[in-house]
Amino acid sequence: MIEAATLLDGSGLQGMEPGTIALIVLAGFAAGWVDAVVGGGGLLQLPALLLVPGISPVQALATNKLGSVFGTTTSAVTYYRRAHPDLKTAIPMATVALAGSFGGAILATLLPEEVIKPVIIAALIAVGLFTLFKPTAGELTNLRHTGSRHYAVAGVIGLVIGGYDGLIGPGTGSFLIIAMVAFMGYNFLAASAKAKIVNMATNLGALAFFLPSGHLLWGIGLVLGAANMVGGYLGARMAVSKGSKFIRIVFLAVVGALILKLGYDVLFPAV
């Protein structure tokens, strides 16, 4: 269960070592790039925040969302300008996901992570095996549903994965992409473009819960956000120029890293 302790006050930057600030900037840039391509930037960003002396887990989670909002917004705009995603699907999906993320953030204060992580690892393994052994999946868009059924499936995906993002977070973009590829029939590029819009909404939903709580460290969050924006812009441009095959390769690498990270957390929980 996440404790609502406040160990740092204000911006969080006061008295911070230059090396720690450099680590946050580097993690924010790398996380923005990874998130823009396939999601999973939280693997880099959240652990970096937890290395800040005196920060509490809930402060790290809240500040991580603040930084991520900048990166996902930048990559969403870049994708929109270059890949022109279908907003008729993305906007309703993002709206439902925002509500799911807000609810997930509430649950984050109530449920222990050790109950959820084994389920997430199993889902990630299934996702990785599907992508690995179905090399043609996500190469071309071949929509599986039409009309109201298409939007209903999009809404369910947005609600479930939005809830996950508010509850835990890392890998949200990856789950969104594979869900749109496997259950809706989009190619990796189209799915990634929509995932950024939805992921932007899930970050905002979780942030709406954390904002009035007083846990945000604004100075760290804004530094993180600036680095996220640069990484997100460059990652989105590269993903659009390289196409679905490139995204698939990076996707498999990120999913593998997520499995290792969460697996380590389950096997060797922090004392």
Rank of each mutant, 00 (worst) to 15 (best):
L87P: 07
T89R: 08
A90M: 07
A90I: 09
I91P: 01
P92T: 10
T95F: 11
T95L: 12
V96H: 15
V96Y: 14
A97Y: 11
A97N: 12
G100P: 04
F102H: 08
G103E: 10
I106S: 02
I106D: 04
A108V: 08
T109L: 15
T109S: 14
I116D: 01
I116W: 03
K117E: 12
P118M: 08
V119R: 04
I120P: 09
I121A: 09
A123S: 14
L124Y: 01
I125N: 04
T131V: 04
T131D: 02
K134I: 02
P135Y: 01
T136A: 10
T136L: 06
A137T: 00
G138M: 04
E139V: 05
E139Q: 04
E139F: 02
E139W: 00
L140M: 13
T141D: 13
T141C: 10
N142S: 14
L143N: 06
L143R: 07
H145L: 12
T146D: 13
G147A: 09
S148H: 15
R149Q: 15
H150W: 12
A152W: 15
V153S: 07
G155C: 06
G155V: 02
G162C: 06
G162L: 05
G163L: 02
D165G: 06
G166E: 07
I168N: 06
I168F: 13
P170C: 08
P170S: 11
T172C: 12
S174A: 03
S174F: 00
L176F: 09
I177V: 06
A179G: 01
M180D: 00
M180Q: 02
V181A: 03
